[in-house]
Design a binder for these strands. Structure first.
Lengths: 350, 350
DNA sequence: GTTAGCACTCTTCCGGGATGAGTGCTAATA
DNA sequence: TATTAGCACTCATCCCGGAAGAGTGCTAAC
């Protein structure tokens, strides 16, 4: 059987209608809804075909039809009209000079959640590859040395190290130079045992400190590679009866609280991302188990300097795809402009 | 009317039974449950008295009785037998050397949630008063200066500052000395405009940097004063039908995601804390609106060095108070021991 | 003071009838 | 041949009423 123009129109009408109401759509409704001027009987025949082809399904005999995952997929791929959504409020809020990355991202999540009425997640940007930029040791008091580690992208980590032997300012200076000349510009895989041994030899009595610093560096880079994720509007799932039953809601809320799985989800976004950076997972397509009754739309954003992060929106399968995707695109450009205008990645703090 | 010994016993039996089953308790049940050897009719008379006195109530005529907030309060204050709960799993998990505060606290929240089957929250410890301990400026590259700010309790904040004029190493050193001698050991309220003016004068051409550093210091201290809160087991609320309906659950989940109100809740713990550091809020007693159908048990913990934080457990009013309080006490001592044995506050990172 | 007994209340559960939305099929129509 | 009107049928939902059962309050007897 072929999916002719008329069938497409009917499918589209079914989906549009279902997105709005959340109720199964009957043939009579379609007959009035479209400009096809067909009787409900004809629509019924066509709908029977569409069902056979797997685009729609019936919750039970004598109910209307609802879109299947396959139907949604076709809709998203070929029928959607992206709505250029204004995110006025967002613009205003962002403009209040936000120079702290964390606050900015939390706010993005919040505004998106309020705007779309779905649950949102935003990951902090990551640099492409984490190179060590700079190390500085300085004394805090007699037995404590502060190690500051700056990673490419100006992400900064601190560690306080305990020392037993006292250390002169001069030794500290030497150690600083030694560490920076040896390790500066390297990424974690490039630091090998050979270097460490050489440095330890040169450090002599203070070789312990070298080990501790190396550990701290490794940990700092690793920590930066673990995504930080901010969520908002988790409770929006209660707006959609198909997600609000206890078992499903509980699983979803757990996923949003634990964040582990969200990380995997957003990680996938990077790997499979197309040119626009927007992706849609419908129902079973999602990599996260607890979201198999949801749709997830993800977008990547860039803040310049190779700093990329991603944004996700989680809602029911009858999500307003047009609007969500439009909104995400707006946010993408807004974040882009924000960077151009006034955001300096160097201001990132940890 | 007086609350004699027999009435107390009956009240206790009602509460115990209700805690277990969650169902209204009838007179026949009590008559068998207790060792009073009274008929159900007698119990009924006593229960009518208890209801008149406000300790129990009837959901509707011809239902059994459930405890009122006042009843729970009496129970918690005078009838409870704290159960020395073993938190074996906890012990094991904590012992895997956790030198990162954040992970430790997240784990505490998680273990507690698993152990009690309620929702938990843990705040990061705060120092009593945030004094500035140490400032260090160092050059990252030509136009970027890294400012490291160490606050009492070894909490570290970083800022990267943009500079237009180049700056010699010597100038940087001078600035460092100037900043540390002027500001070291002061807390935020003690830094006044006079000092700032004097420093700016001394800094001459680089007075801009001084302003920026001061701003950074103020922000760092302010940021540290905002509590960081970790939550776990929010979805446990679905285990208790009296909290699991959509409206209540949604509100609660929102409270746990936003964290703002949790902060206020834990803040109260500090202010009203008694000697044991454990407090119980029953129903309407809680300062958080969305928890008016819950009970909240909070505890403060101390990690030495004046670093105090708090822990909260949120569940239904028919919470197993005995066990929760026992568990919290165990955690208190365990955290205490942890500090003694191997936890060094200096290892806190940001 | 305690208890047995009984009438009464109120919730919960279940089955059945009415309602209505929507279908599939058939036969008539353009 | 495609479309449509008409009709019988299905199924979920709603509402009602009766039965069951838990538990009470009251009274009268112990």
């Amino acid at each position: 059987m072929e999916l002719d123009e008329r069938k497409k129109k009917i499918l589209q009408a079914v989906i549009r209608n279902y997105l709005e109401t959340g109720e199964p759509v009957g043939s009579r409704t379609i007959s009035k809804f479209t400009d096809l001027n067909l009787s409900s009987a004809t629509i019924r025949n066509e709908m029977a075909d569409l069902e056979e082809m797997g685009y729609i399904l019936q919750p039970h005999t004598s109910a209307g039809r609802i879109p299947s995952d396959k139907g949604y997929r076709l809709y998203v791929d070929t029928m959607m009209e992206e709505k250029a959504r204004e995110v006025v409020e967002m613009k205003e809020m962002l403009v209040e000079r936000q120079d702290k990355m964390e606050l900015l991202l939390k706010q993005v999540a919040k505004v998106l959640a309020q705007n779309t009425q779905y649950a949102t997640l935003v990951s902090a940007p990551q640099t492409e590859r984490n190179k060590l930029k700079f190390i500085q040791l300085s004394r805090v008091d007699v037995h404590q040395i502060l190690a500051v580690i700056v990673i490419e992208g100006n992400v900064i980590k601190n560690n306080i190290l305990q020392v037993n032997e006292e250390m002169s300012d001069e030794t500290l200076l030497k150690l600083n130079i030694l560490l920076n000349t040896t390790l500066g510009g390297l990424c974690i895989d490039e630091i090998n045992l050979g270097m460490i041994t050489v440095m330890k030899e040169q450090a002599g009595i203070h070789s312990d400190i070298v080990s501790e610093v190396i550990d701290a560096v490794a940990e700092a880079i690793r920590a930066e590679e673990a995504l930080e994720i901010y969520t908002s509007g988790t409770n929006n799932i209660f707006r959609y009866p198909e997600l609000a039953d206890q078992e499903k809601a509980s699983e979803l809320i757990n996923t949003f609280e634990e964040k582990q799985q969200l990380e995997e989800l957003l990680q996938e976004t990077f790997n499979n991302g197309d040119s626009t950076g927007i992706q849609v997972y419908i129902g079973e397509e999602t990599p996260v188990q607890s979201m198999r009754d949801c749709s997830v739309v993800t977008a990547t954003y860039e803040l310049g300097g190779g700093m990329k992060g991603s944004i996700g929106i989680v809602g029911p399968k009858r999500m307003d795809y047009d609007r969500v995707i439009g909104t995400l695109r707006t946010i993408q450009t807004q974040l882009d402009e924000l960077y151009k205008d006034e955001f300096h990645p160097g201001e990132k703090k940890t």
